[in-house]
Amino acid sequence: MGKAIYGLSIPFENYPCWNYDEDGGTYTFERINPKGIMTDGLVGMLEGHSFDKQLGRTDDGTLDLYVNERGLFFRLIPANQAALSCYKRVKRNALRHCSIAYHIQKKDRVRIPVDEEKIKQLQALGDDKIIFQELRKIQLYEISLLNNPGQDGTFCTTDKHDYRLQGIDWERPIQLTKGKIKQ
């Protein structure tokens, strides 16, 4: 296979996405439930969430998705000028991360024991309000390449053999249909 961009668009481990509300002094940590990712059968890839910079789509064979216990991975085959330009920037490490766009169908506030250490660290800094949320159901419609991700742990690379991609069977992408993405 020729040129491709690979990456992790949704990490499932820990709580990779967080926000801080200065007015309320509240940290909100979010993670996406791996079993709750749904699509309408089409996911597009853009640069920087800009619809005038379309890089690929799952329905035209330029974007494949892969899921395992670590996250939702992708492979983009650059087939237009915008995608080729992004490929060059990813190759020279000038474009390094991903973001997603989705509609939230269901979310729950959760508190689990493994987060107690993180809670204590934040409270030691004087922040008493800490919320953990699990997005139980989302409808994914876009993945974007950019440098300021909303979730920690995302990445993109042109190296198919990058250690972070270990265990991905690039010959077996998931088949997108309306409804849940199957692991």
Rank of each mutant, 00 (worst) to 15 (best):
I104F: 02
G25F: 02
L46E: 10
C17R: 08
F12R: 00
R75E: 13
L84M: 12
I130T: 07
N147P: 11
R31C: 03
I131E: 14
E69W: 02
I130E: 02
I112K: 04
R70T: 00
L76S: 05
G167L: 10
R70Y: 01
R75H: 07
N68V: 01
D162W: 05
G48E: 10
F74V: 04
D23S: 08
M45P: 05
H97S: 12
F29E: 04
K160I: 13
T58M: 12
D159Y: 10
A4L: 02
H103N: 12
M45Q: 06
L125F: 09
N33Y: 07
G41T: 07
Q183H: 11
Y87G: 03
I37K: 04
C98M: 05
E116P: 02
I130K: 02
D152K: 09
T28C: 07
N14P: 00
G71R: 00
K91T: 06
R164A: 03
I131T: 13
L55N: 04
E142M: 08
G41S: 11
L84K: 13
Q123F: 08
R70A: 01
I130H: 04
G48L: 05
L165D: 06
M38Y: 11
L140R: 03
R57G: 10
I32S: 01
E30F: 01
F51H: 13
K91M: 06
T158A: 10
L46K: 06
Q133N: 12
D23H: 05
Q123E: 14
N93M: 09
R96Y: 04
Y27E: 01
M38S: 12
K118R: 15
